[in-house]
Design a binder for these strands. Structure first.
Lengths: 155, 155
DNA sequence: CCTATTTCTTAATCTACATTAATGCACTGC
DNA sequence: GCAGTGCATTAATGTAGATTAAGAAATAGG
């Protein structure tokens, strides 16, 4: 359990690593993401202040996610093993977030996903480049551009 | 904490209900799913023997998922509150499953998702109708049909 | 500052999957 | 036993979003 100061762009965890840690963001902004076999990047989550980022794989198995800093950040690094009762609630919160995300990905169009994202994470929209939002939504930056244009026309 | 015997097709939980329970499958097969605003059904998870199904929303908020039985089943019903240390590991397992599912949905094509599903849940493929597999994969039954046809040609 | 690199936008074309519709098949229940 | 309903498959057509390409705008770094 130690405090880290990370610079924008710095990588905290690589895909494939074992015994990866849990990161609690005190200030700044982190993200977790994968790179698939075609070399494409897919953002799994953003983690602003007070959020927690970690790969959900068990400590002994290789991580599926990279974690890096989108802004200069201060984070607390912890071992995965420490799971007390207080954490159980946090785990359930995370489950809920992931459940919502899956339902979104399965049932909503690009426009709907964008609307939902803007409504749910208004501050993050301002802080990250468009291409990362596109990556989070599961679309290309070009598609996000058109979505935003259509949105403007409709008012 | 009680034992339930449910018949094929019986609904255990409706979307919108509060204070929903956790179900542990002893035998048979359950599924959780949502119905979107366009009236379309999307299967969130299958739960065969020894799996656990539940909506991840906190007990007081309305559930997002329906849960019903695909086969006659025997299940244990439990309250969500009871979360002991032993459960923490189960929660982490679930997180991992959901994390994998999100990455799949974002990075893999229909064919790849089907291949992965067959490889990961070979027994479930045999037990559920095609349209439910399609729904789980996030595609239409028609698209699943073509995927399977292409697969046969390639051998 | 000024240049270089990355990011964003726009438009043209392409493609995976959705939609629609028709047909054959299995299961169900009288 | 056979009508009725739901399910799987096939094929024709439609469409959201991907890909490709090129220019404009923003950012970074010396």
């Amino acid at each position: 359990m130690k405090k880290l100061e990370v610079k924008k762009g710095q990588i905290l965890q690589h895909k494939g690593e074992v015994h990866t840690k849990v990161y609690i963001v005190k200030s700044g902004l982190l993200r977790s993401y994968t790179i698939d076999d075609k070399g494409k990047e897919h953002i799994f989550m953003f983690a602003p202040e007070d959020w927690l980022v970690a790969d959900s794989s068990p400590p002994e198995t290789p991580a599926e996610l990279f974690i890096d800093a989108i802004e200069d950040s201060i984070v607390i690094e912890r071992d995965k093993e420490i799971t007390n009762g207080h954490d159980a609630q946090k785990l359930i919160n995370r489950l809920q977030v992931l459940q919502k995300r899956i339902i979104m990905l399965m049932s909503a169009s690009a426009i709907e996903r964008y609307e939902h994202f803007v409504a749910t994470y208004p501050d993050i929209v301002q802080r990250v480049p468009q291409r990362m939002i596109a990556s989070y939504l599961g679309i290309t930056p070009e598609a996000l551009s058109t979505v935003k244009r259509q949105r403007l026309k409709e008012r």
